[in-house]
Write a protein that binds this DNA or RNA. Structure first.
Length: 918
DNA sequence: AGACTTGCTATTTTT
DNA sequence: TAGCAAGTCT
């Protein structure tokens, strides 16, 4: 998808009046003025949807529940803006999270508006729009406009080099971990100067900050940036160059944001900069806080770019930039809650921003998404119109009722009540099944699928394509795959390793990258010795050192070395060849069509031969992938544009031709829908996942619950949940207890089945006891009381007689199991127990602040909803005691998460509730 | 350079 | 338990 044309004049008509309505626009207007009829594209919208489409002015938040026609609203709204002549396509900024969503929107707008309208140049992911901005203004971030975008792999390798260069032990300080830390900082819009002291100290013996700085400098010399920079650089550019920002203010008349609940802080800041117009001259400052809009004087010359200049300026003489500390102070760049409010007048007048999202489907908190962004919308944009889409077009009343009842257990939410008008008597309730272990679970699901596949009484049968198995963690997939293979049942796994992550693809891309951008050292290093040319570590080190010493790219250094006598004849000859190759290819870049060139490169480098001579099983597949890669290049105009899209866009298409069951994680199921959905693994520890609980406490639990909600709402007609009594975790069998979420389902819509139809066939082999663990008759501590109406629930169902429905023997045994397992479940089993704190140890009586409820601990009580709210009572340097790890010193604090260097146990991250001061 | 051994870890994933 | 990555030995 080469989507938007880069060639379009930038500010094609910055101040132009929107186009005179023509084509469908004219029809639309005629229709409206002439008779009171709505134009075609508004037909079929319900009143709320229509309101969301037609309220084009001012800030609008559309709370779109699952299956309520969110994408339709978004696309129709754009069509409406275009059709009524309110803006050119190029004056609309529309951001999504994934390329898939962007592609889909483009296509649907195309359908609504007709082919004639040019593609929207500013519709895309945050990152792809970020690249576009950055390419235009690269020099303001200290880059050249042909900068390279590094992926995670490159980043990790680069950081590893830096760690080693610092003389640090790269085992004790894993590059991967640091890469994640940097990513986290960038998600918050924090530059090296802005990161909290604790964070900076937590890594590499306190060298975290320097390392981050060194990393940014290195990126600059490489003329490269990482994914986070695609957001952060534009933010800094906007802040430091009000004139640039102003041009975009002029340009973007309408801003639309999809999946607003998934925005992270950096994305939020980016949006705020673009959305907030300082027209109330000087009045842009927030109530009692720093303005979010750019403020010239304070920032001039001291941006992140400036900081990097200084770093790089040592190269030239160290006189530029002065010695002032880098100044993207956290106050400048990171909003805190207090400062967000700002005088409403100017905002209301100018910002036509429409954010669409669903707080109940926020499931990416772990990668920096801030639900608060959506919850706070009306404070950020005073006078905002909030529109709720609650009419669901997807699921049956039972499914909807179940999902709504579950999600009502969450606190921090707007609260929506989904409803449907499709109520059919013969709709099935939501099924809950128990199985002995994961193997039986897979077997039973397989049988259920086969049953659906067979024609029923009316002769209807279900396609495999309409069924999906949604798991919490990918290890669960394997059991299903194994089972389906033996059954001969087609399946496809969605997600998983991507095309461009494959070894051969990455190698090939590295060749191309060096050709396109000679300064790409990471790519160069990857392939200098591919195929093997006898350039060992020593030679590469030498190239590297030479490059660093002379401050030139490694490719150039290699050329120089090849001409000098510093190398032994063999490596020298090899290097000379490599250098000659690249020189030739770079020349050919201007003259040869890029697909042809790509083939030549792979041929001449010996890369294809390498795989042809390789007799491993994978080799033919790899060659095939290389061909596929070349084929996919045809869609792009140049090698450069191809490489850019590879970095941001590439995703492998699945063949939809085949009728196959879909297997994927709950996360990757967001946005999809299926006739029939299977949700296996509803057990404590797995779902909600133990780690989410340990690390996220209460808010972690709520996110897990939202994940459950997402899972439930994927189903249109049939929904089957499963839990097992025994699951193998890390090779050990563990007995498990049903997920607390199962208890949170409304009795009225749920049907608890005894172990499925498979049970008869296999039951005996488990020895009648099945999941009972012994003594019967123990009181179930979770009575019906927990099912009392929680918050506003849906169809007004009452949950009184819940225990009746759940009173099957299997359920009771499982319940009983649950209590017994409390003291010996996950985590407390394995001997070493890394950081699995919380469950399992709960009854042993320590752990300040935990609240025990009916024999079980709810960790959540000790963790604040959002980390920033409750600063820890401890401070860095405090000496503390932990029951399991012993004594140690606090080296960093992040909210209530402490990083502690234990005397014996090494460095651990623990919640502050688990330690006591010494 | 390639085979073998050891050690570690073990959610979710986009860009 | 298993799968991978890095280290060691030949």
């Amino acid at each position: 998808m080469s989507g938007f044309s880069e060639d379009m004049p930038f500010f094609d008509e910055p101040n132009a009046r929107p186009p005179a309505p023509s084509g469908i626009a004219a029809r639309a207007m005629a229709a409206r003025s002439g008779h009171n009829n709505a134009p075609d594209y508004l037909n079929g919208l319900n009143p709320e949807q229509r309101l969301a489409v037609e309220t084009t002015e001012g800030p609008v938040l559309v709370l779109a529940g699952a299956g309520t026609g969110k994408t339709r609203v978004l696309t129709t709204r754009i069509a409406h803006i275009l059709a009524t002549g309110k803006a050119f396509p190029s004056q609309i900024l529309a951001v999504t999270f994934t390329n898939k969503a962007a592609r889909e929107m483009k296509q649907r707008i195309g359908l609504l508006v007709g082919e004639k309208i040019e593609g929207m140049p500013w519709l895309g992911t945050f990152h792809s729009i970020g690249v576009k901005l950055l390419r235009r203004h690269a020099e303001l971030a200290g880059l050249k406009s042909d900068f390279t975008i590094l992926d995670t792999d490159d980043v990790v390798r680069l950081i590893k080099q830096l760690i080693q260069a610092e003389g640090l032990d790269d085992k004790r300080w894993p590059a991967k971990q640091f890469a994640q830390m940097i990513d986290g900082w960038k998600n918050k819009g924090l530059g090296p100067a802005d990161i909290p002291e604790g964070d900076a100290r937590a890594f590499a013996n306190g060298k975290g900050r320097e390392l981050y700085k060194a990393y940014q400098e290195r990126l600059k010399t490489l003329n490269a940036c990482d994914f986070g920079d695609l957001l952060c650089h534009p933010i800094r550019i906007f802040r430091a160059n009000p004139d640039v920002l102003k041009e975009y203010h002029k340009r973007f008349r309408y801003i639309l944001v999809d999946e607003y609940q998934d925005t992270n802080t950096a994305q939020y800041m980016w949006l705020r900069l673009l959305a907030q117009r300082p027209e109330g001259a000087g009045k842009s400052a927030g109530a009692g806080g720093k303005p979010v809009s750019p403020h010239v004087g304070e920032m001039s010359g001291r941006t992140e770019g400036g900081a990097q200049d200084r770093g790089a300026s040592k190269d030239h003489n160290g006189n530029a930039g002065g010695t002032a500390p880098p100044s993207v102070g956290s106050a400048d760049i990171s909003p805190t809650r207090g400062e967000i409010g700002h005088s409403s007048a100017e905002t209301r007048a100018t910002v036509n921003i429409c954010c669409v999202g669903d707080d109940d489907q926020s499931i990416y908190g772990w990668r920096g998404a801030e639900v608060d962004n959506i919850l706070r919308f009306d404070k950020d944009f005073p006078g905002a119109t909030i529109i709720r889409l609650e009419r669901n077009y997807r699921s049956t009343a039972h499914i909807l009722g179940t999902a709504s009842h579950l999600i009502a257990h969450n606190e921090g939410r707007f609260g929506k009540t989904l409803f449907t008008e499709k109520i059919a008597e013969d709709d099935e309730k939501v099924h809950v099944h128990a199985a002995w272990d994961s193997e039986e679970e897979a077997r039973a699901v397989g049988e259920t699928i086969e049953a659906y596949q067979r024609p029923d009484k009316q002769g209807n049968r279900h396609n495999l394509n309409d069924m999906a198995i949604l798991v919490r963690a990918s290890f669960q997939m394997r059991e299903f795959e194994d089972r389906f293979v033996t059954l001969g049942l087609n399946y496809r796994v969605i997600g998983g390793p991507r095309f461009y992550e494959r070894l051969e693809i990455r190698d090939a891309l590295a060749f191309f990258r060096v050709v396109a951008q000679g300064a790409d050292d990471l790519a160069f290093e990857r392939i200098v010795n591919v195929p093997k040319r006898g350039l060992g570590e020593a030679t590469i080190r030498q190239i590297h050192d030479t490059a660093r010493a002379l401050r030139i790219p490694m490719l150039e250094a290699a050329e120089k070395l090849a001409e000098s006598d510093e190398l032994k004849p063999k490596p020298r000859a090899a290097l000379r060849e490599v250098a000659a190759n690249f020189e030739r290819w770079q020349k050919a870049l201007e003259t040869t069509p890029h697909t042809e060139l790509a083939e030549t490169i792979l041929e001449e480098s010996g890369y294809t031969d390498m795989w042809k001579n390789d007799r491993s099983v994978e080799a033919p597949g790899r060659l095939e992938n290389l061909k596929e890669l070349i084929r996919s290049m045809e869609e792009y105009e140049s090698l450069r544009s191809f490489l850019e899209h590879v970095a941001l866009v590439m995703d492998a298409e699945q063949n939809a031709e085949l009728d196959a069951v879909n297997i994927m994680t709950l996360h990757s199921a967001k946005g999809l829908e299926f006739e029939t959905v299977f949700l296996p693994g509803w057990e404590e520890g797995l779902f909600p996942h133990q780690r989410a609980l340990d690390e996220g406490g209460r808010s972690g639990l709520e996110e897990e619950r939202r994940l459950a909600y997402v899972g439930l709402t994927r189903a249109k007609k049939n929904l089957h949940l499963w839990f097992v009594s025994n699951r193998r975790i890390h090779g050990l069998w563990q007995s498990t207890i049903p997920s607390r979420f199962l208890e949170e389902l409304p009795e009225a819509h749920v049907d608890v089945a005894e172990s499925g139809n498979s049970y008869g066939g296999y039951g005996n082999s488990y020895g009648g006891g099945s999941f009972a663990s012994g003594r019967g008759g123990r009181q179930n501590p979770y009575g019906a009381s927990r099912f009392d109406n929680v918050g506003g629930n849906t169809d007004g169902e009452k949950s009184g007689a819940f225990s009746n429905t759940y009173a099957t023997p299997g359920w009771q045994r499982a319940q009983q199991n649950r209590t017994e397992a409390t003291d010996r479940n996950w985590g407390s089993r394995s001997g070493h127990q890394v950081e699995r704190i919380g469950y399992g140890e709960t009854d042993s009586g320590y752990g300040a602040g935990r609240t025990s409820v009916k024999g079980r601990t709810i960790d959540g009580e000790l963790v604040a909803k959002s980390v920033a709210d409750t600063p820890s009572a401890f401070s860095v340097g405090d000496r503390v005691f932990h029951q399991k790890f012993g004594n140690g010193n606090i080296s960093a604090i992040d909210g209530n998460k402490l990083t502690i260097d234990f005397d014996k146990a090494g460095q651990k991250r623990v919640l502050d509730g688990f330690v006591t001061g010494v």
